[in-house]
Design a protein around this nucleic acid. Structure first.
Lengths: 190, 190
DNA sequence: ATCGTTACGTAACAATCGTAATGTATGGAG
DNA sequence: CTCCATACATTACGATTGTTACGTAACGAT
């Protein structure tokens, strides 16, 4: 058959390129041509791997989720102490370095697009559900059963609030404060 | 001179129209023609009151802030009991009805645009500063001086987290939970 | 009544967009 | 080597965009 090319790898490259464009030019700057330029190819390649712009965008959002989810799972498995594990998960979810900041910028952007966009809205709901479930799992060994649900919700809210704050104003102090708030929350669990 | 027309009122109409378009079609749908259609006029009128699309967008964001700020000030002056006042301010800041939900949708959208958009980013920073100051003022009569700053930051984070959650999934339960969280926070002040 | 300014509709502009058709080089199967 | 499916690049298309120049109707001052 034809050239040997890792289909998934190509898709990842293109999604990565769309992230780069999005973080520099903002959502409105994400055009197929601009993504192609960032990926060092032409729109032809994009058309070959995605049906259209919408599908590329959905893939971008989904990949941002799965990528973060994978990191969470690694952490969840590597750390055995329940409290340390929860702490590691929470810190990993914050935009504390360049890569995670980019992830958060992607998320914020898609929150906006999902307003008035059915498919993306559903996609977002799904990730919330998964994220909440992961937090609930991490909480279960620490607190009593009845509190798990309440605290999971509260953590989602806390992370969203901190994440937004740091993403919109990614200063050293904001990052430091976010970490502090996490530790304060964890302390309240005792 | 020419026709008598309230300049500010016109600008408000056009901004209102841009909100309507934004909440239905999302950010990418906000074109001058579409805004004009929503405002029952042509792009000519928009051009007459705003230098261009960017200026319209900035005015939209700014007006969403000032409008919310005005409501806050009314509340702050009408309620004398410090704790009740703080509670009223916090509840007013959440997307608990259609109008405030629309405001939050506008904010979320502009968070996204402000990524990679210098002017809007600065505009956002400014509103954060004002919002934090307002919360600090409301906190001052309630807690000791040293805690004001910390708690103001924490409240900004809490409101952002709750607001995002409700805006992206505006269900009855989410709204109820948000109100609960506010009361739980207030209870912790004692 | 006239005049000048204002308010805004109309329309044309180039640029950019997403999409799709077409061309072409490539490299493994036979 | 031959062949053909694949992996793109190239290109063209029509639609839509922000912007701007121009036309005109309306109204307050004189």
């Amino acid at each position: 058959m034809p050239k040997k090319v890792d289909h998934d790898e190509r898709r990842r490259e293109l999604v990565q390129a769309s992230w780069d464009v999005l973080c520099v030019d903002g959502l409105e700057g994400v055009s197929l041509r601009r993504v192609a330029q960032a990926a060092n190819c032409t729109t032809g390649r994009i058309a070959h791997y995605f049906k259209g712009r919408d599908e590329l965008l959905i893939a971008s959002l989904r990949m941002a989720h799965t990528q973060a989810g994978a990191r969470m799972r690694v952490i969840a498995e590597s750390e055995t102490d329940p409290l340390k594990r929860l702490r590691a998960i929470l810190l990993e979810s914050l935009p504390l370095d360049a890569r995670r900041l980019k992830e958060w910028q992607v998320w914020l952007s898609f929150w906006a697009v999902s307003i008035g966009h059915k498919d993306l809205s559903a996609e977002n709901q799904l990730r919330y559900q998964e994220w909440r479930a992961a937090l609930a799992d991490a909480l279960r060994p620490i607190v009593s059963g009845k509190q798990v649900s309440v605290l999971a919700d509260r953590l989602v809210t806390l992370i969203d609030g901190l994440g937004v704050g740091v993403t919109l104003s990614p200063t050293k102090e904001a990052r430091q404060r976010a970490q502090n708030e996490i530790d304060i929350f964890l302390k309240s669990l005792n």
